[in-house]
Design a protein around this nucleic acid. Structure first.
Lengths: 354, 354
DNA sequence: CTGAAAGCGCTAACAG
DNA sequence: CTGTTAGCGCTTTCAG
């Protein structure tokens, strides 16, 4: 690989001169156009390309940011969502002229991980971690630029960009309420690993309570849960006073409810309405297409990258936290509460619910 | 950020000594355990972490590999597949103690892209590009370590790891033939952007020809195609001598066929059998679950990473090309040819196909 | 067994 | 306006 020295030698100038014209910054000194051309020609002939390591070592800039996810997520959880996250991050980085690094090497301890993030290879990080993960605080301590994605953080100094999940949960529930449903089951996560889980449930609770309805939450159930773990859901759907609608905290779960409903002989949306969250690509692929609350991933990630760049450039962020409103993508999995069971009392088939 | 000099100073030793014990390599010189401990303590107290840039500048190793995809794929094409690729690459890299870099910054020309890949930040690359992309040849010229994924390459010096797509296409077709189907439509890609497309079609042709059947291929149709572009498929399914089975070159297409079939009032698999390729996560989510040929992504990517590492370490690769056999994941979208139309002649409804 | 010194390839002061 | 010089933080050879 030819180095800057080779180019300088060939062009008959100093390394400094070559560096100036090749790195193409607002040159503080003027070099004759003729000389510039000579240098550029030499570089071209040699197939010269600057060594990014050497350059970064002195400039302290790599034009690379890291995307740090939960290690456990390597397992394939949140399938569609991860895909969208990467796609979105890729595009945002493309716009910002940044490369994206996926941190895969396992660190022994959180401290080591934080330290290694700040090892010079990346200018900053997009952090997508579980609630309670020590990384954000450690990064803050080290003064390393980062923005947390999709989740709030208890420490007010942690910058984050997230969807208004409470509003989303409320919206989903209200949509179901407007359709006449009263027995609405919410499927939440067993261990609340993100503020999203908690907030979506909170939104659900709010909407139910404001109508004087009793919230019903099954806090278990992963999409890939064993049949045993999924049993409470099956049981709920089988019971005589079963819910007429289900709001799942994310699409993967909603999809599983769809399959379970079908297996139980329940028609969707006639017998059971289902609404998910994230509005991932799969929603449009299934039958009926899944109605879902959309987290504007592109906007969230795009905003996060913008703010990360600002932070890297030392610009003040002003407000550290950014809340993006969710939207509702109505598809085909929700319908009015069954005609056979009109809103209110249904003398014929009232199983005592309400 | 504390540097090695700080650690050395604090421990009262030279930078060299500190470097030796902290980089923990098979030390060519022995340092007293007591001194070692002192150095380690100093490092710990200072929260020292080596600067990866400076280290890489001299060692010429970054323990990072790049994943280079087609730029157009930022659009969301091959949705499920991309997801699996990243997940798989992440895991393979984790095993090999490597970080994964997604090259997102757009290069003006192929030469510039090749040059920038070799800018020192990555030790090698996993290349997933369209057929005819100039990158592999350029990388070869530069002697930069890489392995191409999922596709063969006309240049025999390009190392690649791919699925036996011809066998996969044959397998899918034969499975349908065994179920009694004779009018089998193959959905291929308009512009063959990977050897996979071509080979899957070739496998289909082989299987059909060996039974003396006429291949029927619609070479258009992307999943996200406009309705106009999709029209030939709709037309084929509507025609009186419509195919009784469809083999789509990848799952996204198969899923769209499923939706189209449903819209046309065709039952799957009773009226129409559908088989896809890739066996992506979505296959299990739809109803009926999609039968699909599985490309063993983990094995392909895992092998590629292994071989990339070998190449980086300067070990000879032996055979440059690796073919991984596909598997068939039977789910619920294929059934025997309709009872109303028994294999062979169907006096009642013979539309002259065969 | 240890420590000084050279240098990886580049940028950015600073004299000429 | 140029070219020389001094590092960035680390590894590694080579005298002590």
């Amino acid at each position: 690989m030819p180095t800057l020295r080779d180019v300088a030698l060939r062009a008959g100038v100093s390394k400094a001169a070559a560096s100036y014209v090749l790195s193409g910054r607002k040159t503080p000194l003027r070099i004759p156009t003729e000389t510039q051309e000579r240098i550029r020609a030499a570089a071209r002939e040699l197939g010269y390309h600057p060594n990014a390591l050497a350059r970064a070592l002195v400039t302290k800039r790599t034009r690379t940011v890291a995307l740090v996810r939960q290690h456990a997520e390597h397992l394939g959880v949140w399938q569609g969502f991860n895909d969208e996250l990467i796609r979105s991050a890729t595009q945002a980085c493309l716009r910002a002229d940044l490369d994206l690094m996926l941190r895969t090497r396992q660190a022994s301890e959180p401290e080591a991980e934080a330290a290694s993030l700040a090892d010079g290879r990346c200018d900053g990080a997009l952090v997508f971690r579980h609630l309670g993960d020590p990384l954000p605080d450690l990064l803050l301590q080290r003064n390393f630029p980062f923005v947390q994605l999709f989740s709030r953080h208890p420490n007010p100094n942690v910058p984050w960009v997230a969807c208004d999940n409470t509003a989303g949960g409320r919206r989903a529930t209200e949509y179901l309420l407007e359709l006449g449903h009263r027995q609405i089951l919410h499927l939440s996560a067993g261990s609340a690993h993100s503020s999203a889980v908690i907030e979506r449930a909170a939104g659900y609770r709010e909407a139910m309570s404001s109508r004087g309805l009793e919230p019903a939450i099954i806090p278990s159930g992963w999409e890939w849960a064993s049949d045993e773990e999924w049993a409470p859901v099956v049981q709920a759907l089988k019971s005589t006073d079963r819910p007429t609608a289900v709001f799942a905290w994310y699409d993967g779960l909603a999809l599983r409810v769809l399959r379970t409903a079908r297996a139980l002989g329940l028609r969707v949306p006639e017998d059971l309405s289902i609404i998910g969250f994230d509005s991932s690509v799969m929603c449009a692929q299934v039958d009926p297409p899944l109605t879902s609350v959309r987290q504007p991933v592109d906007e969230i990630v795009g905003t996060a990258v913008e703010r990360l760049v600002a932070q890297i450039n030392g610009e003040p962020l002003g407000d550290l936290h950014r809340v993006i409103p969710p939207a509702l993508d109505v598809r085909g999995s929700c319908g009015p509460r069954s005609q056979a069971e009109p809103v209110g009392q249904s003398p014929a088939r009232n199983h005592g619910g309400e």
